[in-house]
């Protein structure tokens, strides 16, 4: 049954992919991309990657779609017919695809428990994590503790991307209340948005602080938190949202999250451990790991949420 769902979802993904190639309306393509993301999120659940599925659903189907729609609104909806014949690109794609498929023939089968990918570190993470870290969700313990350096780097990349978007699109600290006249009349939309807003934030907090025990963590929580505010901004206008959470505050928060993360690393150095070695943070090593993970996940959550909102504000406050 699981395999059947897997195969059907992959088939649907392929159909959506071809539809994206053929469709000329960019707004339609954006909607199809959203469907594509939602389908891949469902596929991730089937493939046991629940944490990844949460992230993909919130990011791909949520925020990425909003950003693409904003870009289409700022540019144009029609795609011109290309001047060149598609023969050469088609040939290149076919040749590359054939070479890649030839390459897969040597790979272990899908789901093979003896595949090299599942030996060595992966095995030791699964065995040692409950003893060394004491956190049931191994994805969280690998993300926040074993590979803490990596994650710090990635949070910094996200922060840099926000700086890049700010540099490109500028920043309007006191945006006019940009609001399509149509949405004011959409009573159902506004009421539902108002009802959902606190629930989404509550869910984000749950995902943030329950990430040690179930699927979740700073990345997912940050994104879900941001979608709550984006929904609010969509229904009530950018100005209202900016009164709730001003742009200047977001800029400080985005930096603060990265700083919290790095500060935890420095603190563990000051206490005699290595950079990001959480077990020295408390008397008991396990308690230290818990404290360290909680703090850095908080830093990640704050940065991710504010970066997503900064990017959203940047796109939406831009006018033609």
């Amino acid at each position: 049954m699981e395999n059947l769902i897997n195969d059907v979802l992959l088939g649907l993904l392929m159909i959506t992919g071809f539809a994206i190639v053929r469709m000329k309306s960019l707004l339609g393509v954006t909607m199809l991309t959203s469907i594509y993301s939602l389908l891949s999120a469902s596929l991730f659940v089937v493939l046991d990657a629940v944490d990844v599925a949460l992230t993909e659903a919130a990011i791909g189907a949520g925020i990425a779609t909003v950003l693409m729609v904003a870009t289409v609104a700022l540019t144009t909806d029609e795609e011109k017919v290309p001047r060149h014949t598609p023969l050469l690109p088609l040939l290149v794609v076919m040749a590359t695809g054939a070479a890649l498929i030839y390459g897969t023939l040597d790979m272990p089968h899908h789901g093979d428990p003896l595949a090299p990918a599942h030996r060595y570190v992966a095995d030791s993470y699964l065995h040692d994590s409950p003893v060394e870290i004491g956190v049931p969700n191994v994805v969280t313990s690998v993300l926040a503790s074993y590979r803490g350096y990596d994650t710090l780097g990635e949070v910094t990349v996200i922060f840099t991307a926000a700086a890049g978007v700010l540099a490109l699109l500028g920043y309007r600290t006191r945006g006019r209340n940009i609001e399509a006249a149509g949405i004011r009349k959409q009573v159902v939309l506004r009421v539902i948005a108002k009802l959902f807003f606190p629930l989404i934030l509550l869910f984000a907090l749950y995902v943030q602080f329950h990430g040690d025990y179930g699927p979740g963590g700073g990345f997912q929580a940050g994104v879900i938190f941001a979608t709550g505010f984006i929904l609010y901004a969509l229904a009530f206008g950018l100005g209202t949202a900016q009164r709730l959470i001003p742009s200047q505050l977001l800029r400080i928060l985005a930096a603060a999250g990265v700083l919290i993360y790095a500060a935890v690393g420095l603190e563990s150095m000051l206490l005699g451990g290595k950079f990001l070695e959480y077990r020295v943070l408390a008397d008991d090593p396990i308690a230290g790991q818990h404290l360290g993970i909680l703090l850095i996940e908080l830093g990640v959550g704050i940065t991710v949420a504010s970066v997503m909102l900064i990017i959203y504000y940047g796109f939406v406050s831009r006018r033609h």
């Binding site: 990425a64 870009t71 994805v139 978007v165 994104v223 796109f315």
Partner: peptide
């Protein structure tokens, strides 16, 4: 769990770079 961790962060970074591209 290891590929899950790599991809989880890659999705968020991927959106950040996509946003930069769209900008």
């Amino acid at each position: 769990p290891l590929p899950h961790v790599l991809i989880l962060t890659a999705i968020v970074v991927g959106l950040a770079t996509t946003a930069l591209g769209l900008a």
